[in-house]
Amino acid sequence: PGLLEPTSCLIRVSKTAPTLGIAIEGGANTRQPLPRIVTIQRGGSAHNCGKLKVGHVILEVNGTGLRGKEHREAARIIAEAFKLKEKDYIDFLVTEFN
């Protein structure tokens, strides 16, 4: 469904560092209903990728939609995608608009 978002963009982040290195805020039942990136830490995989930006709103993680997911659940989905050994990357579908 996220593919229908007109302004969305798929970003593949390779696991090039021991951490992903993003901070997110938001989730269902908060003022920010989808997780938004608020920090990108230097030296993390996201920073090394160079394409994820502060302000990006995350619509999907490896094809799993985050709409309707509360903050902790969304954070868990992202953390598990990073831990998953079978994949050396995470695909984020993001949009710059809320």
Partner: peptide, 15 residues
């Protein structure tokens, strides 16, 4: 719109 304004802020998680 009104309802949206009353929603709480989110916590922040570092990943």
């Amino acid at each position: 719109r009104e309802k949206r304004l009353t929603l709480p802020p989110s916590e922040i998680t570092l990943l």
